[in-house]
């Protein structure tokens, strides 16, 4: 008999699951959207993605070395942050932009709070919002899709925001990504593929992303131009009540399925997650319809991230044998 037996507290069985496996699964689910982005915008997109990832990994590595903590750059979480940040950038940006963005995302968005699991805000979105605030010109200059019958380089949402008339854009074009936009957000088809993979494997549930999407759709349908409350005189100037366009444009699908669902920064219970999804949907729709920006996904998710602790507090599960 062994002289030393292992003694620890039960349980003695563990599910075959790990944090890094989850992270890499999300990375895999994002591959189709990346491939689509490169096909649509060309090799520039690939460089932005690679720079974003490498810079995120190096930042994490250096900070962990400096703070004398264990280096965990292979756990997939920094990789995922870099990837998501790059997906939120236009394809033609100066090479230093993804580098600075990833640095900010990892250093300020994640490590300042204490690293994995400790951050309040989604790190990739912190990075993106920092870039939008600092270099708005680069962040809103979109390249036209190269291999498709190019329509326009501005995003559909930006065109609407400026009050111009959106021409020649079909839902099918939007669905397959034939439009201007950020690298990872344009091809809805690829994003839906990835999201389905995560659903089937049980890594995400419908509670946040579907609620989020449905609320944006409903809200823009009711309050959008040509919607219920729009005076008829402005009809024709926009796309009133066009909920499908709102769902298919901008970063809604990328945000709802891959960023709002971030475990660390979203509520723990199903009930909390539905509230979170509704909140994201409302804020996104309000910004898009009446705010200063054409797009509201990043801010909506970040604001709801901030609300997560309080949502958690008020959506505790009913414990067995107690009344609510």
């Amino acid at each position: 008999m062994k002289s030393k037996l292992i003694v620890n507290v039960s349980p003695h069985l563990h599910k075959d699951e790990s944090v890094s496996k989850i992270m890499w699964m999300v990375v895999i689910s994002l591959i189709p959207a990346g491939v689509a982005g490169v096909l649509i915008f060309g090799l520039d997109a690939l460089w932005v993605i690679l720079l974003g990832i490498v810079s995120a990994l190096i930042t994490e590595w250096i900070i962990q070395l400096l703070t004398k903590r264990r280096v965990t750059i292979l756990d997939g979480s920094a990789f995922l942050t870099g990837l998501l940040l790059a997906y939120n950038l236009p394809a033609k940006v100066p090479f230093w932009l993804p580098v600075v963005g990833s640095f900010f995302a990892i250093a300020i968005g994640k490590q300042v709070f204490g690293g994995l699991g400790q951050n309040i805000f989604n790190p990739a979105l912190v990075g993106r919002v920092f870039l939008v605030a600092s270099w708005p010109k680069y962040m809103t200059t979109f390249t036209p899709p190269q291999n498709f019958d190019a329509i326009t380089s501005a995003t559909p949402l930006a065109i609407i925001k400026e009050g111009r008339i959106l021409e020649k854009i079909s839902y099918l074009n939007l669905f397959f990504g034939n439009r201007g936009g950020c690298i990872g957000e344009v091809c809805i088809f690829a994003l839906v593929l990835g999201a389905l993979f995560l659903f089937i494997r049980g890594y995400i549930s419908w509670h946040i992303p579907i609620t989020y999407t449905v609320v944006v759709g409903l809200f823009t349908y009711i309050f959008g131009q040509k919607g219920l409350f729009t005076p008829p005189l402005r009809a024709g100037a926009g796309f009133g009540g066009d909920w499908l366009l709102h769902i298919l444009s901008g970063g809604l699908i990328l945000g709802a399925f891959f960023m709002a669902t971030d475990y660390v920064t979203s509520p723990l219970t199903r009930c909390g997650q539905i509230i979170f999804g509704i909140g994201c949907g409302l804020i996104t729709a309000i910004i898009r319809l009446w705010g200063g920006y054409p797009e509201g996904v990043s801010y909506a998710i970040l604001m709801m991230n901030a609300a997560t602790p309080i949502i958690d507090r008020y959506t505790k599960n009913r414990i067995y044998g107690t009344k609510i």
Binding site: L116, G117, V264
Partner: peptide, 13 residues
């Protein structure tokens, strides 16, 4: 019998 290192909670729920 082996068990993996304890990591920070990622709040997966």
């Amino acid at each position: 019998a082996s068990f993996n290192e304890e990591l920070p909670c990622i709040r997966c729920g």
